[in-house]
Design a protein around this nucleic acid. Structure first.
Length: 376
DNA sequence: GTCCAGCTTT
DNA sequence: AAAGCTGGAC
């Protein structure tokens, strides 16, 4: 801990000064947090043998994705690619198959590419320096800090949404996660509190506390190790911190989906529509502002693919799905074809690969495609 | 139905 | 500043 009596941080030419947190308070909180983590850390698969490779894979998968969702993906992924060299020499399509259903598919491409860079430029070991780690595709500020602190126990503080929530409540910081000022305030607190001896455990403890105790809407203050000294708890309204971030409104879009079946195979194309899910196999689909415009756009698309184009019957089912700010209403038009002809850009995929079995990574299909298959 | 996870790239 | 995926909580 610095011996100055206030914390100073120079960011973009501005000097921020904040009242320091009393050293005794910092130490008490740090110790309470680390002891809580020692007793309550969940036995997550990437914590069993925390090699840098496993830590890195888990951090990429955990971006925007919940722990419970990640666990089976992580286990399958490490079975398929036990180390960075195995990942580096894998086919891209195979990596995508094992990512199928996890979302944000760009992550898998960047991960694969980064593995090849690690093998070629870093001797097959995840780099130990911030700059080198940051140079890898898919590794931004947060991921570089988390991997280096957890895998190598280097003194980097991490700031994710969980950490921001815990700290804003503990120190009663106003603002929301997207504001630079707010983030700087949180960072100042973290710099004062980070355990220099056990930064990895400290960071994981804060994030775990945010995930399991300091919950957004219903914090479990009675079991929180930071309750003593928590400003939001004292205020009586812990759920009011931090402020909700402004959100872009979601727009409803209609999607027409052709479920073209021949024998027990479905015709799939690469990509969805409007440049969404470009790497994934999907049922031929088209967006529109209404059901009817979507249907017509789908017919246009099918005309370019098949001649003569099939006629579309009445839709058999509607499913709902969300992609970023779009709320998608998908009408499914079942089409039977006599023979599974070879068509350029079309791939016939056995129905069983789209079911629950697909979770084992047998096809690079989106979750949307799986919902469609399940509705048939 | 709304909110939350909540990071990286362009 | 905006876009990208999916699932779960409430």
């Amino acid at each position: 801990m610095a011996s100055t009596d206030f914390a100073v941080d120079i960011t973009e030419g501005r000097v921020l000064r904040r009242t320091p947190i009393a050293l005794t308070e910092v130490r008490a909180a740090r110790q309470a947090l680390l002891e809580w983590f020692r007793d309550h850390a969940r036995p997550l698969p990437w914590r069993r043998h925390p090699r840098p490779y496993a830590v890195w894979i888990s951090e990429i998968m955990l971006q925007q994705t919940q722990v419970g969702t990640v666990i089976p993906y992580f286990n399958r992924f490490l079975r398929a690619f036990p180390n960075v060299r195995a990942l580096a020499r894998a086919r891209r399509e195979r990596v995508l198959e094992l990512w199928s259903g996890l979302g944000y598919y760009r992550r898998s491409r960047d991960l694969h590419c980064a593995a090849q860079i690690i093998v070629r430029q870093f001797g097959g070991r995840f780099p130990r320096s911030y700059e080198a780690a940051r140079s890898l595709p898919g590794v931004g500020d947060y991921t570089a800090r988390s991997v280096l602190s957890i895998a190598y126990n280097l003194p980097f503080a991490v700031l994710d949404g969980n950490v921001a929530r815990v700290v804003s409540r503990w120190r009663l910081l106003r603002g929301h996660v997207q504001e630079t000022r707010f983030r700087q305030s949180v960072e100042l607190v973290l710099e004062q509190c980070l355990s220099r001896r056990r930064p990895g455990a400290f960071n994981q403890a804060l994030m775990e506390l945010g995930q399991t105790v300091c919950l957004p809407r219903a914090p479990r203050c009675p079991v929180c190790p930071l309750r003593v000294g928590c400003g939001a708890y004292a205020s009586g309204r812990p759920e009011s911190y931090p402020e909700p971030r402004p959100r872009r409104r979601t727009e409803v879009r209609h999607l027409a989906v052709a479920a073209i079946r021949s024998d027990s195979k479905f015709a799939l194309v690469r990509g969805l529509d409007e440049s969404l899910l470009p790497d994934l196999w999907n049922f031929p689909s088209a967006f529109g502002a209404s059901r009817e415009t979507a249907r017509r756009a789908l017919l246009d698309k099918l005309s370019a693919l098949l001649s003569p184009p099939p006629t579309l019957p009445a839709p058999r089912a509607e499913i709902r799905h969300s992609i970023t700010h779009r709320s998608i209403r998908a009408q499914i038009y079942p089409v039977e074809m006599a023979a599974a002809r070879r068509v350029h850009g079309l791939r016939w995929v056995p129905a069983w690969r789209l079911g629950e079995v697909a979770r084992t990574g047998s096809a690079a299909v989106s979750a949307l495609a799986r919902k469609v298959a399940a509705a048939l």
